[in-house]
């Protein structure tokens, strides 16, 4: 049994700024989960998380390098600093406390830290939560929303291979096979290119590979109904929902509080 939560949130960290941020998390099970992310970790991780939430890419860049130089494992910096910070961002976004611009600068700060973490992780062969292929479909050059999803997915411990924009069906197929990905995420921002998602799914069927991979779709014009019509396994209306969907598709049941695909989650217009 966990200790009863006191009226005044107890402190997990010595970081006043981070403590203030954590107070935006109000659902009891989420409070417990978020606190557990910071419990007993080094103050530099709290510093990284706080600066990520504030969107300060310069500080996240500097602190990530500092933490690695001090001998912290890349994995620890990722989990205890960047991912822990992103978890707070996700909840604040879902609960309408912050909006797209604030999520974007947090994602940019995360990207600054990931630039150091990723090369180390890909060499060390650490077991990821899952492997996801992401790309914007053929004919479409928009990728702000997709990039946001990728940051959030990496923040949730996925290894993500980004195929960029204007991705042909065969490029999706090749990447899924090459990386043995469990999940494929496709994005479209234009009503004119949205049907290309369905065409890519048909290509997987034609190759007899549809059972090999779970396919999720998203993007401003995409709807649940459209996703079902074209035979996708999941639809996410924003970057938070994208992470939840990916976790569900790879069957994550690790007891940590999921970021629900809450009714309160809003559209991340990309």
């Amino acid at each position: 049994m966990e200790a009863h939560l006191p009226e005044t949130p107890y402190m997990t960290t010595q970081h006043a700024g981070l403590e203030k941020e954590i107070r935006y998390v109000t659902k009891p099970f989420e409070v417990k989960h978020i606190r557990s992310l910071f419990e007993g970790t080094d103050p530099i991780m709290h510093e990284i998380a706080f600066n990520l939430i504030s969107g300060d890419q310069v500080e996240v860049d500097r602190l990530t390098r500092e933490a690695l130089a001090r001998g912290f494992e890349a994995n620890a910096v990722l989990d205890d600093g960047l991912i822990a910070g992103m978890a707070v961002v996700g909840i604040k976004f879902r609960d309408n406390i912050i909006f797209v611009p604030e999520v974007l600068i947090a994602a940019r700060a995360m990207k600054a830290g990931m630039a150091y973490i990723e090369p180390i992780l890909s060499e060390s062969g650490v077991e990821p939560v899952g492997t996801v292929i992401m790309g914007t479909v053929k004919g479409d050059l928009h990728d702000i929303g997709k990039n946001l999803c990728i940051m959030m997915l990496r923040g949730a411990g996925f290894v993500v291979h980004d195929l960029g924009v204007d991705t042909k069906p065969e490029e999706f197929i090749d990447a899924v096979l090459e990386h043995g990905a469990q999940v494929l995420g496709m994005s479209a921002l234009l009503t004119t290119t949205m049907p290309n998602m369905g065409r890519a799914i048909e290509a997987f069927e034609a190759e007899g590979l549809r059972e090999e991979v779970s396919i999720m779709v998203g993007g401003a014009p995409v709807t649940q109904e459209f996703a079902e019509d074209m035979g996708a396994d999941g639809y996410g209306k924003d970057a938070i929902a994208c992470v939840d969907m990916a976790r569900a598709l790879v069957g994550v049941r690790d007891g940590s509080a999921p970021l629900e695909t809450a009714a309160g989650a809003r559209e991340a217009s990309s």
Binding site: P101, L104, I105, R108, L141, H142, D143, I144, N147
Partner: peptide, 18 residues
């Protein structure tokens, strides 16, 4: 000029949101 093909489009877009 195709804007979205700038390699740092994401960073510029984020900057532009401010």
């Amino acid at each position: 000029v195709e804007l979205e093909t700038a390699p740092d489009f994401f960073d510029i877009f984020v900057e532009g949101c401010m």
